[in-house]
Design a protein around this nucleic acid. Structure first.
Lengths: 210, 210
DNA sequence: CGTCTATTTGAATGTACTCAAAAGCGGTGG
DNA sequence: CCACCGCTTTTGAGTACATTCAAATAGACG
């Protein structure tokens, strides 16, 4: 029997599922019975702007696939400063993988920057997929491999480039994000203050003019 | 038939294989026939200090497991500066995953900091394991998940902490590395100059004294 | 003991931060 | 339509963090 749905989640719509299946298609396409397994376990949620799907001290219990909208994952330091670790827009995954697998309280927040629609898979369901299916192991392995490479490039940027270079790299690599994010959020992602990013943007635009 | 071994690689020793099997044991232990598959495809190499196992513009063709010794992976910027992205000592994996899967030329170097002994798995052999075995997909998925979490913590450190905080965090998190690495290498990993790291170490030691 | 490399020190410079204040920019209500 | 609110972005002055370059010192190894 399908588990009772909590009041905030719904059965996944065919439209949302299609986004998810399409994102798998680029790795190893799912067969009908595999799609049905996902259909059976995925829960759809509608998230308002500024709503959190993970807060500090929670244990991260889901893998979240973003169907529409945009999220940020951030940590808060002792002084109250927020530091963005990751953004996730359409067709991206977001969760605190460390907390998810260790089942230890997260030190991170995940917040919707825009109204959003997501699909969530619970840990016990994901583990079942992993235990039974080579393909799901494989697809999620590839997804995280790609995210690993992305993170590694970011580390490289951080240790070897100035704020200006990192900003230019960011807007070139993520035009779909940079055009819709407030620059405060980008500053927090790049690891600089909003004031300084503003100055960086100014010097870039005066450079272009000359 | 077993493929001919190139002159620099050897059949894996039982001792080296044991390290590898032990590192899998913490995830999902291998059965005898799975160990035999590894035994069949893993090549052992002895690497001298300062020897490279990957250079810029090479395509990364192996997953490398470090049995003994220590490596660093780094990039070189336009000015010739080196930036360490990762260290790998005993029982750790190291390779340019981006180049490995995309088969595009790497922009990275992997160099032995100490004399080393490694086991290498070729891409075609790894893909074969992935195609046939749920467990290998799963084990390598878990390995990269752990490395992903580690990288994510590093990104967080980079964007939110001073050099002093990052250095203290490094020596606490990786005592087995910090005690054997020249501080130049640590500076390059933290993203600061060796001169500045030296000053940081001084202020830390005067703090402790007081 | 000398040679080579790694580490430390110092002065001048550059990059980025803090704090405070001003300017811009949607909404919303009158 | 305009006035006001809340929020983001910009500006500026002063400060802190980190770099550059050059030179001195300390360690490691044959």
């Amino acid at each position: 029997m399908r588990a009772a749905l909590d009041k905030k989640s719904e059965v996944a719509s065919e439209e949302a599922l299609k986004s998810l299946f399409d994102s798998f298609k680029e790795i190893l396409p799912l067969k009908q019975h595999e799609k049905d397994e996902i259909r059976f376990i995925a829960r759809q949620r509608t998230i308002r702007k500024r709503q959190f799907i993970l807060q500090e001290d929670d244990i991260c219990k889901h893998y979240t696939f973003v169907v529409a909208g945009c999220f940020r994952m951030f940590s808060v330091d002792k002084k109250g400063g927020e530091h963005n670790i990751q953004f996730a827009a359409e067709n991206d995954w977001i969760s605190d993988i460390g907390s998810f697998f260790s089942e230890k309280p997260s030190r991170l927040f995940i917040e919707a920057i825009e109204p959003a629609k997501i699909l969530q898979i619970e840990k016990k369901d994901l583990l079942k997929l992993y235990a039974e299916s080579l393909k799901f192991n494989r697809n999620f392995r590839v997804i995280i491999e790609n995210k690993y490479v992305e993170l590694q490039n970011r580390v490289l940027q951080n240790i070897s480039s100035t704020a200006e270079e990192r900003y230019i790299f960011f807007i070139e690599q993520y035009p779909h994000l940079s055009s819709r994010l407030p620059s405060t959020q980008i500053a927090s992602y790049l690891g600089v203050t909003p004031e300084f990013l503003s100055k960086v943007r100014k010097t870039i635009s005066t450079k272009r003019r000359s």
